[in-house]
């Protein structure tokens, strides 16, 4: 028996919005420690890695490790049926063919359940190596989304450059060029509005706008986003998910020919 209950059910709705444009299907791995999902997009340019810790749920029971292959378009349709304030429970038997989503209204007067067929997916399990990043930028998630959206009008790529002076986002194309520079916040009352930079060495890499814009679909999950960059390593874009876990996106840089 598997059962995971989350009072803040809207988190699941937001997670699906954050992955469904990048991935069509994925395996949800459930175990004692919690729920994880790891999958590359079809082009193998980016990787999504989601981790939800069991202790972050209001109720969590997992008698046996199980892997549930789901069509994320279908799962998203189901989660759209949940109200923003609903309590969401995901339930499955051992060796399941189906998974059940139960939505309860806050006052307990409405309960709905949706059963979805699982898929048998033959996906690779990947290990993400630990690394010390040359630059780690933390900034408001909304600001990052805005910059990606604005600069996408100028070209297919965004150059992210990080130095002691700050972080710079640049794009250029047929209509001209654009630069957005952010300095490290000197005096911040609200932590979530801060821009902070930890730098070992300056870096500058080029990334595809299309994928950065997919990643920013996670913006409603978190006030801040963390961008980690190193030579010879993919960009990591991380959004914390309350006190339950995080979603990380990895993106291979574009390479000069």
């Amino acid at each position: 028996m598997f059962e995971a209950r989350l009072a803040k059910g809207a988190i699941f709705k937001k997670i699906l919005e954050a992955v469904k444009d990048l991935l069509t299907e994925a395996s949800w791995d459930c175990g004692d420690m919690g729920i994880t999902l790891q999958a590359m997009d079809n082009a193998h340019v980016s990787l999504v890695s989601l981790n939800l810790r069991s202790d972050g749920f209001d109720k969590y029971r997992c008698d046996r490790n199980l892997t549930m292959g789901m069509n994320l378009g279908s799962m998203s349709k189901i989660l759209k049926c949940a109200g923003n304030d609903d309590i969401v429970t995901i339930r499955a038997q051992d060796n399941p063919d189906t998974v059940t989503f139960v939505f309860e209204s806050e006052n307990g007067e409405k309960q709905s359940d949706y059963e979805m067929k699982l898929m048998s997916l033959d996906l690779e399990h990947l290990q993400i190596p630990e690394t010390e990043y040359a630059c780690v930028v933390k900034m408001p998630a909304g600001e990052f989304a805005r910059i990606c959206r604005d600069l996408s009008q100028f070209g297919d790529s965004i150059v992210i450059s990080c130095s002691k002076q700050g972080v710079k986002f640049s794009a250029s194309g047929d209509i001209g060029s654009a630069n957005v520079k952010l300095a490290q916040s000197s005096n911040v009352d609200k932590e979530e509005e801060a821009v902070t930079i930890e730098m070992q060495e300056p870096v500058s890499f080029t990334y595809a706008c299309r994928y950065l814009n997919f990643f920013t679909k996670a913006t409603p999950l978190s006030a801040q986003v963390k961008l980690s960059m190193s030579p010879e390593y993919p960009l990591m874009v991380e959004y914390a998910i309350d006190d339950i876990g995080q979603i990380r996106y990895f993106l291979a840089p574009k390479i000069e020919d």
């Binding site: 340019v45 980016s46 990787l47 990947l126 290990q127 291979a252 390479i255």
Partner: peptide, 14 residues
């Protein structure tokens, strides 16, 4: 011109 890199070589298949 730039080419889009892929991730295959970064992650170890378990």
């Amino acid at each position: 011109t730039t080419t889009q890199g892929r991730l295959d070589s970064f992650f170890k298949v378990l």
